[in-house]
Design a protein around this nucleic acid. Structure first.
Lengths: 136, 136
DNA sequence: CTGTATCCTCTAAGATACTG
DNA sequence: CAGTATCTTAGAGGATACAG
């Protein structure tokens, strides 16, 4: 059996994407680029917080999103969840050691961003201005 | 004129999200979490590359995606584009100084990922296993 | 208080075909 | 070779209502 060039290309793409899915860096990016993870982790930086406290600190997150990002972080072993059975229920979230370690990396990201994103914004404006001026 | 609690909450959310949009760290995350930017930047780490060379190095990216991530990176001043008018046309892409600087941060991310994502994967399996065992 | 279950929207990413 | 123009689709994110 032989293959067309197209088939070979598609096979290569598939293999490549399959590999990508298992690339640790890609996985990490997928985790931290979820809209609320960084904010949640930052909110937990200073110690445990209850669900309701997190809601107050991150008013932009819907309840569903807050719960689901907390679940994802728990599943990844970055946050631990402690439920106190009472009426009403009380739930505390806390960074695990690995979570703290990741937080360090995130802060590095934040620092770079705060130093450089102004420049990026400026570059964007320049780029857009030229596009307008010289048509295209 | 008065406002309901609901209106106040929505206003707060809107203000918060508006603020988020201007948060440098969030913007950076949005940039680098675009599926192909890290791969493109890594491919450019060792020096300039032509469009076709990039395609070969990153076979998973469709032409459209490759072009559009390159455009985005150029707009942000992270990559520069040099077109040589000839037949056929030749285009070279290269990291700018700011691009190199960002690359450093990305490598930090990669290092953390390579050290920790195994642990994360393990945590995920444990989590899922418990979920299956104890129902819920 | 903490969380689940639906339903809906919007957009990043991909497939495909075409142009200078 | 490099790039643009459409069309489609999968899934992240959100609004709302309900439940233990």
């Amino acid at each position: 059996m032989t293959f067309t060039a197209e088939q070979k290309r598609l096979a290569a793409q598939e293999a490549y994407n399959g590999g990508l899915a298992h690339c640790p860096a890609r996985q990490l990016l997928e985790t931290i680029s979820s809209k609320w993870v960084t904010l949640v982790m930052l909110a937990l930086a200073d110690g445990p917080q209850r669900h309701s406290e997190l809601r107050r600190q991150i008013p932009g997150a819907s309840q569903k999103m807050l719960t689901s990002t907390l679940r994802a972080l728990e599943r990844d072993g970055l946050v631990s969840r402690l439920v106190t059975v009472s009426v009403p229920v009380r739930t505390d979230y806390e960074l695990t050691p690995r979570g703290h370690s990741l937080l360090g990396v995130l802060i590095g990201l934040k620092d770079w961003a705060e130093e450089n994103m102004d420049g990026v914004a400026h570059a964007r404006m320049e780029y857009d201005r030229h596009r307008l001026e010289f048509g295209e």
